[in-house]
Design a binder for these strands. Structure first.
Lengths: 356, 356
DNA sequence: AATAGAATTGGAAACGTTTCCAAACAAGTT
DNA sequence: AACTTGTTTGGAAACGTTTCCAATTCTATT
């Protein structure tokens, strides 16, 4: 309704200068008890609140951290943001959030926007950390920042899963269960350095264990034709016994597609996912997957940026092998002797395998 | 590294006044072609970008919309935010996000924070829309706002599921499947008017169909003791055949607990959820639930606030009965003649039942 | 009673914009 | 040549703060 009251209004009502009001309200400098009372009364009467805009202009810093992520609909990022939120809130910072929908162009414009809003720092997930224009702008400006879910090029802090190591761990899991030829399923392969690094690490892992080079099954934005693609893929590569999906949603989707093709998971086709979203434990069979801790990573990235801002000690990200765990699940079959059973799986084996 | 360039630096480098730079860059007022070139050159050389802080102070409006939601970890809100994001981005607005973790106190402080940051509008989900202090502050200030997932008291716009009607629809579903006595499972019952309204609507619906009054099963923050609580609940209410869970996560959790008690879902206990998250289709049996459209609601709330700001026509929220659908699923058993079968369920019946 | 020192107070500048206004200048009309 | 008109330009005020500094008032000491 009415325009917000400013510090001038308060000064007028309290019968003093604006400097005094500022001093009283911020508890900086001295003020007589009587004056404090008058100011407090005026504030109450006018329901006064400082304008952060005025403050920011004066102090040339906002208590706001910018976040750039591909999507909030993906629970991995949603959880990471939740973790960061809790950290920021404790320190009195707010979160300015921009989603890029996996588009590198929006990435750059998002960063420009955040810079002109003068955020105090930025946490971001980019499409390609090695050649992100936005990222170099940030560095050039010397803006406190931290990557999230991107493995960092030199001179950038980062909280991330070690994609290559985790993917190699998947190769190990397949290998231990006597799978020799597998596929790698990716979405947006060209738009995500995560997917590429997982593939790379997976190839290395497979090679190291004497497995065949994994075939790449790449799909487009919408899953619509996944079943047909899978059918084609399997007919082109008939000896494939397992598929590593670059995230759990893809893994669940490919399980469904396999079913539609009358394939039994895991007997006919084993699946391993990536991310470790909770749902993986609720489906039948349970999803074998790499478990990550998005909340921890988000919180870490948040703490890192805050530590840059406050010039306090920068928190150490977990070492590479502590950023993930392999979780066994019913979607991964052992191809040895016992594989002749009826393919039955225990309903909810929530057994963790905390490999290093 | 170096301090950001200001409009003054640009003016200096271009050899003109700041007013001219402002005019050229904003394309407001006239400027000679030669001057435009000089300014453009200076901007490029300095990598100049306007400070939104300065602009906001001058225009007394930020291109920022504040969002207050209980949690981003809950996919219902995450999806709603995603929907809103897309709308905001199109209009050049940003999202300032605060999570309250279902705490009414944080709610108020979040709103105060947003007000002092001078957001142009607010989209919010409160704990209790009827008596939210924050909400009345917003109204008193005449700040453009829209409720999300709260059924609105008079004089507030709102995009929300009609909880009462949806809950009544659940009663109908139970009734049609010949269930007579059921329970209602809620978390944070006292902190969420959604849960309360669902219970209320459910009670009304049950009564209307001649069912017994549903028993309330309330659980605390963490699900830990859910199985024991369920056991106790069922022993106290032995004739209960179905449970309406106030959200899908609870529904999935209660399915698990029922299993641990060696109960067959749905033969021994039917479950109906609320929200319609995708996971419900991936579990076995599939979850019967109320399906809602979080993205649509979030986008609608965003559009509403923008329309207030731009004084354009306010979009109409969907009518009450269009805010949800009942989705049949394997977790709901028919208690009539056929109930003597072996309890087998088809794996993925994604059959929708678009009841008005 | 005079003065030193401390406590309290308010004016004004600065932060980075936009916009009003008047000044300077160009070009066309008598 | 003296106007009128229109375009281009820059100075200055305003937006809401904080903070420096100088001015005023108070308290205690001589």
């Amino acid at each position: 309704m009415h325009q917000s009251a400013t510090i001038k209004d308060v000064a007028l009502k309290a019968g003093c200068g604006v400097a005094t009001v500022s001093r009283v309200l911020n508890n900086t400098g001295s003020a007589s008890p009587e004056m404090r009372i008058r100011v407090a009364a005026a504030v109450k009467e006018l329901d006064f609140q400082f304008s952060e805009v005025g403050r920011s202009l004066q102090s040339s810093t906002t208590r706001t951290i910018g976040f750039v992520v591909p999507s909030i609909a993906n629970p991995v990022y949603a959880d990471a943001l939740q973790g960061a939120q809790e950290i920021l809130t404790c320190s009195g910072y707010q979160m300015l959030l921009i989603c890029t929908n996996y588009s590198p162009e929006s990435e750059l414009s998002a960063i420009r926007t955040l810079i002109s809003k003068q955020v105090a720092g930025i946490v971001l997930t980019v499409s390609d950390a090695e050649r992100s224009e936005g990222l170099s702008i940030i560095r050039n400006r010397g803006l406190p920042h931290c990557l999230l879910y991107n493995n960092a090029p030199v001179s950038h802090e980062s909280w991330s899963v070690d994609d290559k190591a985790a993917a190699a761990r998947v190769a190990q899991a397949f290998s231990e269960n006597l799978h020799n030829q597998t596929g790698f399923l990716a979405l947006n392969f060209n738009k995500s350095d995560r997917a590429r690094q997982r593939y790379e690490g997976y190839c290395v892992g497979c090679k190291a264990r004497g497995m065949k080079k994994p075939q790449l099954l790449e799909i487009s934005e919408d899953f619509e034709d996944l079943t047909m693609k899978l059918k084609l893929f399997l007919s082109e590569n008939p000896s494939i016994t397992g598929i590593f999906a670059s995230n759990d949603f893809l893994a669940l989707a490919i399980v469904r597609s396999a079913r539609k093709l009358a394939l039994n998971v895991p007997r006919d086709l084993s699946i391993i996912g990536f991310d470790g979203i909770d749902v993986g434990l609720m489906v039948e069979p349970t999803l074998a997957t790499i478990v990550t801790e998005p909340k921890m990573l988000g919180a870490g990235a948040g703490r890192t940026v805050l530590s840059f801002i406050n010039k306090t000690e920068v928190p150490k990200p977990p070492s590479a092998d502590q950023t993930f765990n392999f979780r066994a699940g019913g979607s991964l079959a052992y191809l040895g002797a016992e594989s002749s059973d009826d393919g039955k799986i225990t309903p909810f084996p929530s057994s963790f395998d905390p490999t290093n």
